[in-house]
Amino acid sequence: MKIRTILLILFILLIAGFVALNFEQILQPSTLNFGFSEVQAPMGLVLLGMLALVLVVFLLALVYYQTVHLMEVRRITREVAEQRRLADQAEASRFTELRQYLQTEMQATAARERDLSDKMHQKIEQLQTILTRVIEQSGNGLEASIGELEDRLERQLPNRQPPN
């Protein structure tokens, strides 16, 4: 129990003990003035009744405020649960959008990669064709130069036989 609850119970028990010890004095009649009239009644009993009435009013107020507080807590709990659900949905939606975006980007990257690969293969084939042509032309030019040199040598040395 909380210390406040223990002190409240202790205070009520002290008042009850005081009333029990002085109950005869509480029941003695006296003249009471209510402002508009005077009445003969036991003063202690009237004060004890007023104390009981105040206690009941405070207890009712406590129950009312506690009920209002519980209702507010339940309303806030429902709102928090709804906000959490909405946040979870938004997060799931963001993940879905991110997944779709990544898939789209991966497909676009794969398409670019295929295009670049195709272009590179075409370029390599072109370079290979050009290189083959250059090699053939160089070979032909070299053969022509060698043929020309052989012709010159044969003209300068006409009696010499080519080795077999």
Rank of each mutant, 00 (worst) to 15 (best):
E91Q: 04
K2G: 11
R152W: 12
N159Y: 14
F11P: 00
R114S: 09
I12H: 10
V19K: 03
Q103M: 07
L142P: 02
I6Q: 07
M120G: 00
F58T: 09
V63D: 02
E150M: 14
L102Q: 09
Q126Y: 03
L47T: 07
H121I: 00
P158G: 02
K2W: 04
P163E: 11
L153R: 12
N22H: 13
E150P: 03
E24D: 15
L7N: 10
T77F: 04
E79C: 00
Q161K: 08
I15K: 00
Q40E: 14
A108C: 01
A16S: 06
A92S: 08
E72L: 03
G49C: 03
R99H: 09
A111W: 03
K2L: 05
N33A: 13
S30T: 13
M1D: 08
I130H: 02
G139Q: 05
R84Y: 02
Q66I: 00
E113F: 13
L45W: 01
R112Q: 15
E105V: 07
K2A: 01
S138Y: 09
E143F: 10
M106Q: 14
V68E: 10
E154F: 05
V56W: 06
Q83N: 12
R133D: 08
P29K: 06
L14M: 10
I76T: 14
V134Q: 06
I26H: 04
F36L: 15
M43F: 14
L55T: 10
S145P: 04
A92G: 01
R133E: 02
E72N: 08
Q122H: 05
L62E: 00
G147M: 03
D118E: 12
S145M: 13
D151A: 15
L45P: 02
E79V: 01
I3Y: 01
A20Q: 04
A108Q: 11
V73K: 09
A81M: 07
L60T: 11
L116G: 02
Q100E: 13
V54D: 00
L98V: 05
Q103W: 03
G49Q: 05
S138W: 02
V73C: 04
L53E: 03
T104I: 04
T77C: 03
H121Y: 04
Q28E: 15
I146A: 15
D151Q: 15
V56D: 05
L13K: 07
P162C: 03
V68K: 12
T67N: 10
